[in-house]
Nucleic acid binder design. Structure first.
Lengths: 318, 318
DNA sequence: TCGCTTGCTGAGTAAATGCTCACAAAACGG
DNA sequence: CCGTTTTGTGAGCATTTACTCAGCAAGCGA
């Protein structure tokens, strides 16, 4: 029942070392003695436990300033859910900060006993969230991807988000078997005419709750960096007013989806504005502020997990 | 909506510092700069965040050895639930190790949507568990104490367990308004004849799930240390074969409740052996092994949260 | 008002941590 | 079977952390 590995250990040791260090408060020297290894092996085990995410750290105190920001954002944009976490200082990235809170938000839904259809986007924020989720049994739910799983270069590194989370919580999952962005509108249409694709699309459209990242369309656009759009396409869309993107679908500063550039060839499901079901965006970072503001304004997302500086920036731009 | 304190800060700062340190991985120097305090103030804030339980650390990896022990214990004693956590080394106490796992176990029930009656004992293990619980809304449940809340010396320090947890999860709670142990059987009976007491007793008897610590009756018995029984009473009960105690009720090595000593004057509700509902013991430590074994044998508890060395010791005594 | 206690602060320092490096064992490829 | 690459190990050392201690300010009783 327990394991395949006979008895010894793998990064079981790492978990144990991390436990002794963070929960037990032992020194690494004591841990070394305890497990019977050298001091610096203990140090490696401890840092490994952290790196591998074997140890989860969560904040358990409502910091006043963050609560205030949550309340303001909720009021300002009529949100269904809002979490603001303290920022991690100037240099640090927003994913790290938001991941634990986003995971907690996702877990809320996973723990619900009635079966849900949960739709997910991709991107770094999603990936961070998934990594921070605690494994659990949630096979009553179905997890569906909003975005195609066929990349231009064939790499699948970005599409294991849904697979990973499905694996972690033992839920069935439905990838979207279309290209993220097809070369031509016709080819995209051809894919979406296929029966199996239609099924997944229908499922995603009917999702009870949606989790997505929000991408900026400035020159550091994730779509560009990951090779989904070319520099020329980006220029064209910027010209047309593009400021952000959700699940690959590009919109302007009011959150209105554009009809130019890759938008006419994007596969998968577009998140409809003004849904009555939760559509939660996970996003933080100064460069994402206009994008997030647009998505919130049009109610492409009606829930938000972000960090403190981003929250302030959102509120400061009347 | 948010806080009473106007805007500044209290140990909000501690939470923030802890967040930056544990989640953000900043050095204490950077944190000092970030919040604008001296380096050693930052260090104090960080350690305070830990001490106050503002930061929760949980292990997220099934350590093979512990899983095996869980399986063995479950089979051996026919348990409904079993968690074994790695020990924290020789010197360290069991409460520290078991508290996070016990809290997770309790939270499982708290998250259930249907209203439950949850009965709780007292003691250090319970206290540790409660401190480790994440605040949440669980007002569908009722929390009831198994044990009287009138101490011999009037101190109430041990009885705030139910109150604390009720406060944390915003659930109604029902303390047991009787002495833990009355001077005479008659006085105890008099208390229990009172209408309000009967109500609470009935509620506790009908509990859907029970959480208790397990006390040893050796010379380091918690009942003795906390002044609930005298040295003479302890001697008398040891003579009669007492090895352990659950919610103040003393039993022998087979888990059979005794009819001597304080047992004839103990207030509150005795956990009935062989319940079909979960009755979960939280206990770890070498000196508790005979007590735990007795409670398990008679099925006073049918669930267990303990640590690795205790689990081994339990299995080694055929 | 004065002296006392209490609690917090910062400086200095011992301890603990994590990083780099050179080396060895194991895995891999020919 | 041998050379090459990869992975892991321990030692030394720079950095970071935690502890102790003396001083200082606020609160309190006289």
């Amino acid at each position: 029942m327990s394991r395949n590995e006979p008895e010894p250990t793998l990064n079981d040791d790492a978990a144990r070392a991390g436990w002794l260090y963070y929960v037990g408060g032992l020194t690494q020297d004591q841990i070394a003695t305890e497990i019977g290894v050298s001091r610096q092996r203990a140090q490696r085990l401890v840092s490994r436990a952290m790196a591998e995410g074997l140890i989860h750290v969560r904040l358990n105190h409502p910091i006043g300033a963050c609560l205030d920001l949550e309340a303001e954002l909720t009021a300002r944009f009529g949100l269904m859910r809002c979490r603001v976490v303290p920022g991690l200082g100037p240099g640090s990235d927003g994913v790290r900060a938001t991941a634990p809170a986003a995971a907690a938000e996702l877990e809320r839904f996973l723990r619900m006993p009635e079966p849900l259809v949960i739709a997910l986007g991709t991107g770094r924020a999603m990936r961070g969230m998934v990594d921070a989720v605690t494994p659990m049994d949630a096979d009553q739910h179905r997890l569906v991807s909003l975005i195609g799983n066929i990349a231009p270069d064939g790499s699948a590194s970005f599409f294991d988000v849904v697979m990973r989370i499905a694996d972690k919580v033992r839920a069935p999952h439905y990838p979207m078997p279309v290209p993220v962005i097809s070369p031509t509108p016709a080819e995209n249409a051809a894919f979406h005419a296929l029966g199996p694709v239609k099924k997944v699309v229908d499922l995603a459209r009917a999702a009870d709750v949606i989790f997505v990242g929000v991408g900026q369309m400035s020159n550091d656009a994730p779509l560009l960096k990951d090779g989904f759009v070319t520099r020329l396409e980006l220029d064209e869309m910027q010209e047309a007013g593009a400021v952000g993107e959700v699940a690959g679908w590009v919109f302007d500063s009011r959150g209105i989806y554009l009809d130019v550039g890759t938008n006419i060839r994007t596969g998968g499901v577009r998140v409809a504005p003004g849904l009555d079901r939760p559509s939660i965006g996970i996003a933080a970072g100064a460069s994402k502020v206009p994008a997030i503001a647009g998505a919130l304004r049009a109610r492409i997302i009606n829930g938000l997990v972000t960090d403190e500086p981003t929250a302030r920036a959102l509120l400061n731009r009347l």
